[in-house]
Design a protein around this nucleic acid. Sequence first.
DNA 1: ATTGAAAATGAGAATGAGTCTCACTATAGT
DNA 2: ACTATAGTGAGACTCATTCTCATTTTCAAT
Lengths: 160, 160
Amino acid sequence: MDARSEGEAVTSEASSDPHAEAASRLQAAGQRYTSGRRELVEALAGAARPVTLPDIESIAPGLARSTAYRNLEALERCGVVHRLETGGDHAYFELAESLLGHHHHLICVTCGAIADIELDGETESRIDDSLAAAARESGFVPLHHSLDLYGRCSSCDAAA
Amino acid sequence: MDARSEGEAVTSEASSDPHAEAASRLQAAGQRYTSGRRELVEALAGAARPVTLPDIESIAPGLARSTAYRNLEALERCGVVHRLETGGDHAYFELAESLLGHHHHLICVTCGAIADIELDGETESRIDDSLAAAARESGFVPLHHSLDLYGRCSSCDAAA
DNA sequence: ATTGAAAATGAGAATGAGTCTCACTATAGT
DNA sequence: ACTATAGTGAGACTCATTCTCATTTTCAAT
C-alpha cells in the first residue's frame, strides 16, 4: 500500500509559470507586478532551495533591502511566497506550495543548508488525518502543516 | 491533572524529575545547577505549553534577562531545553523531548498560541521511515524531526 | 574552615535582522 | 495629460537576543 512514490496526481498542481501566477494573484489584491517583484520571483524560482535575503541580494543585486522585504511580504500575503524560520540568523524564502507543490525540508543542523523533499502520498494523508484528529480535540481549525527533518548534510557529516 | 496518555512503548521515557535530569546533564558538562537554572526548569515544567522569555519573566520574576537567555542556551546544549522558532517576535522554550516525550505542536496563526499534541505511534514510525528514506537519497544523516500544525485556535476562530 | 580557580550573575552596551517613515517616482484608468 | 493610487529607496528605528566585564558564587582541595 505504499510502494508508490512517483509523479502521482498531486492535489495542488503547480502552475507552470510562477510569473503568471504572481501577476494574477497580486492583481486580484489590487497590487502590481513590478519589475522588482518579478526579479524576486525569478530569483526564488531559479534557486532549487529556500534562500535568505543575502542570497537574494547576491542573485539579484540592486534591490533595496526595505523593498525586498516589503515585496516578499506582499508576495507572501498573496500566497506566492512562503517564509520559513529555522532559528538561524535569517529567514528563508521559497515559492509557496501552490507553485512548488507540497513538500518538506531537510535542514542541516551544522551549516543550516536546506533541501526540499517530498513524501509519498499515503504518508501525507496519514499525517493529515492524525493532525486533524488532534486539532479537533483541541478545538483547532487546521490550515496547513510543516514537517522538517533536522540532520547533517553529507559534507558536514564528512567533516565531523 | 495531566491526562495519562496510554503508556505506549515510547522510545524515550521521560524522566520523572526534570531537576535531577538537568542536574546530572549539566554536571556531565562541567556546569552547575544553580538556583537560577532551577527556577527556569521549574517554570518550564510548570507551564503546560512552550513559553516565551516574557512568559518566563512573569512566572519567575527577578532573573536577569541576559542570565535567563544564557541559561536557556546552556540547558539547550545539555538537551534539557528545546527552543522553537515560530516566526513570532519571541522564541518559545519548553523542556526537551527526552523529558517531555516526543510530541508536536498546534500553532495559532492569529495569536501565536502553541499547544502540544501527540500522534499515534504508527503515524510516527511511518513519518520516520519516510523521512529516513528521503534523507538517504540526499546523503543526509537524520537526527530528529519537527511537525507543526498551523491553524486557528478556538478563541481566534470564534473571533473571526 | 580557607582558599583559589572556574563558573555564574547582573547591568547595561552592542548587534543586527527586519520594519517603518517619508519624500519621490511609476503606473493604471479616465 | 491628469490624477489617484501603488511602489521605491535610503536611512532611521525597533527590539529580541547576545556580548562584555566587573563582581559574586560555587566546588574541590587543602
